[in-house]
Computed example of a mutant assay.
Amino acid sequence: MELTEAMRTTGTCRYFSPDPVPDDVLHRAFDAARFGPQGGNRQPVRWIVVRDAARKQALADLYLPPWKAYLAGIGIGDVAVGALPKTVADADHFAEHLAEAPAIVVVCAEIDGLHPTDHELGRLSVVGGASIYPVMQNLCLALRDQGVASAVTTLLCHSEPEVKKLLDIPDGVITAAHVAIGYPAKGFPHRLSRAAVEDTVSLDSYATPLFT
């Protein structure tokens, strides 16, 4: 698959076919993903592929309460957060059926391999993710190349202690995201809706658009 096409059609899949994702497909995807940029080439990312039905259900049970609380805050018909009602309804279906995804990939990272440079700025620290999320996106693109869909969520990171206990994740390793994967039940999107380049790119100062 051509790279730009993959980038433009790797959306969030909410409906999965029950067909399992074969090991050789996963291996090719992880093999490509590991070349994502990482600070100092420390390679902190580790993966856990959860296929066991009981463990997937346990993850789903942890996911559902915070999702429902979030849903109650925005309302299924409320578009104030920028999400269309169908998008919210699809996300609710995903939450209700998370355990049915063929696999859930838990994205982990070794803390010693991260180097956040923004933790003393008095705001949310995000820089450590620069050594994690490019690798994760590589995984999603590599899966898309093989016809496998994905849905990235960070909501389960709120339950990290429970997830670590469930999956025997050792001290010094964090959870950074969870990626439900499988063959899409409804195909891939032909077009994703995103903000225009003209609205997101500046020149020399934040208030000066580069493109008009």
Rank of each mutant, 00 (worst) to 15 (best):
M1R: 04
M1E: 06
L3A: 15
A6V: 15
M7K: 05
G11C: 01
R14N: 10
S17Y: 00
P20Q: 12
D31P: 01
A32K: 00
A33Q: 04
Q38M: 07
Q38R: 08
R42F: 07
W47C: 08
V50W: 07
R51N: 15
A58S: 14
L59I: 12
A60M: 08
D61P: 13
L62C: 04
Y63P: 07
A69R: 15
L71G: 11
L71P: 13
G77D: 14
V79L: 07
K86P: 06
T87S: 09
V88N: 07
A89I: 15
D92W: 10
D92A: 11
F94T: 13
H97I: 13
E100R: 10
E100T: 14
A101N: 08
P102G: 10
P102K: 09
V106A: 11
C108V: 03
D112E: 14
G113K: 04
L114S: 02
H115K: 13
P116A: 05
T117P: 02
L121Q: 15
G122R: 11
S125V: 08
V126G: 00
G128V: 04
G129Y: 14
M136I: 02
Q137T: 12
L141H: 00
R144S: 02
Q146D: 03
L155H: 06
L155M: 11
S159E: 14
E160L: 02
V163L: 06
K165I: 06
L167G: 10
I174G: 01
V179W: 02
P189S: 13
A195M: 09
E198N: 11
S202T: 12
S205F: 12
